[in-house]
């Protein structure tokens, strides 16, 4: 299992975490290359279906990250997002999804090192958990059952 390289998708807001990740790059901070960053205008734009679809397309872990509370470029997008995440996380946990594979964080544009730290620790956690087999079986079944 030690050579397992998890696929991690990060949904980030362009104003804080994306800029933070950019800072990590320009500061030449090395971090795990497993993460694939997808840039959004705001965390408020990140629909829960995106997270589900990431898992359906083979992600082993998903990061959602945006501006700290009160720092949203659009004033309240992250507050709305937080409301949604709280309910969504409880719901998928109740449905039996592994919520340890979901990582929510606040990373500002100045926190390049913090971004690297979160990616590194989360990648390590997912590496320990291994591939998301339960969901992959669901996807495989879907391909067999689908009539289209």
């Amino acid at each position: 299992m030690s050579d397992f390289q998890p696929k991690i998708v990060a949904f980030v807001c362009t104003w804080c975490t994306y800029a933070g990740a950019d800072l990590a790059g320009t500061s030449r901070i090395k971090y795990e290359p497993n993460v694939k960053i997808i840039r959004f205008p705001c965390t408020g734009r990140i629909d829960y279906m995106f997270l589900i679809k990431a898992f359906a397309n083979g992600a082993d872990g998903v990061i959602v990250s945006g501006c700290h509370p009160n720092d949203c470029h659009y004033v309240s997008g992250n507050f709305h997002a937080r409301r949604r995440w709280i309910v969504f996380r409880e719901l998928v946990d109740f449905l039996g999804m592994d919520v340890n594979r979901l990582c929510f964080s606040w990373v500002s544009a100045a926190e390049g090192a913090q971004w690297a730290k979160i990616v590194n620790s989360f990648t390590e956690e997912i590496r320990q958990l291994g591939p998301y087999k339960a969901y992959m079986e669901l996807v495989k079944k879907d391909k067999n059952e689908s009539v289209f």
Binding site: A56, L95, K141, D142, E145, S146, F148
Partner: peptide, 13 residues
């Protein structure tokens, strides 16, 4: 559109 397990799961979410 069709009733597959994953689609059913996503629909309920």
């Amino acid at each position: 559109v069709e009733a597959t397990l994953m689609g059913n799961f996503e629909w309920q979410i």
